[in-house]
């Protein structure tokens, strides 16, 4: 593949590198410090095939040459890989255990999540973050969240979550301080579940 062929199909990244990545980060910071609360994607960005706008914005704001990205089969399109390589400069891995950011669609086979890095007792921060593309997030009472960042309870419903995912999440919570943090992304919305969040599934 020549450089021309690679760049001619490329989509633009952020309109303003500093301001847009800051705006997206602030939403992620809010979402992670108030698990279960839903936030609007604050920027306009075109997503490549395989990703959605919020997933693209999250990766462009947070990932760079220091972070390894793993893309699920459903997300690992040529366009998405080229987009992330160009804009983030991130190494893309096929080994899910090495991922700093793992990206997948909710309706895919999610059996890989048990292989994600959870960090270790001395460095629990050396864990992966799971970015899960979903169709919809809402405040219906599917999951009742409690824990740090939550005053009483936050209600969160995520379209298409399976019992297997909830079981994994509960296990993940018990690994604390190790564990994986999850960011749910739709085209326009972002919500997160920190490893500290206790969830009651209705």
């Amino acid at each position: 593949m020549t450089l021309n062929a690679q760049t001619s199909d490329l989509l633009p990244g952020f309109d303003h590198a500093a301001f847009d990545s800051n705006a997206v980060f602030r939403v992620l910071l809010d979402a992670m410090s108030r698990p279960g609360r839903i936030y609007d994607l604050p920027v306009h960005i075109t997503a490549p095939d395989g990703l959605n706008a919020s997933a693209t914005a999250t990766l462009l704001a947070m990932a760079d040459m220091d972070t390894t990205i793993w893309l699920s089969p459903g997300c690992a399109t040529k366009a998405a890989t080229a987009h992330l390589k160009f804009h983030c400069g991130s190494p893309i891995t096929t080994n899910v255990a090495k991922a700093d950011f793992a990206v997948a669609r909710c309706d895919e086979d999610l059996s890989f999540i048990t292989e994600l890095s959870v960090g270790n007792a001395e460095y629990p921060d050396q864990s992966a973050t799971l970015i899960l593309l979903v169709d919809d997030v809402s405040e219906s009472t599917e999951m009742i969240c409690r824990g740090p960042g939550i005053k009483d309870t936050h209600n969160l419903a995520v379209a298409g979550l399976t019992p297997a995912f909830h079981a994994w999440r509960a296990e993940n919570h018990h690994l604390f301080p190790c564990g994986v943090d999850v960011i749910f992304v739709t085209d326009t919305k972002i919500a997160a579940l920190s490893r500290t969040t206790r969830i009651e599934v209705k």
Binding site: F25, L28, L29, S33, D66, D125, T129, D181, T196
Partner: peptide
Amino acid sequence: MIRRALLKAVAI
């Protein structure tokens, strides 16, 4: 880099 550290810090 700092933002990634902040997200981890908030999570733990």
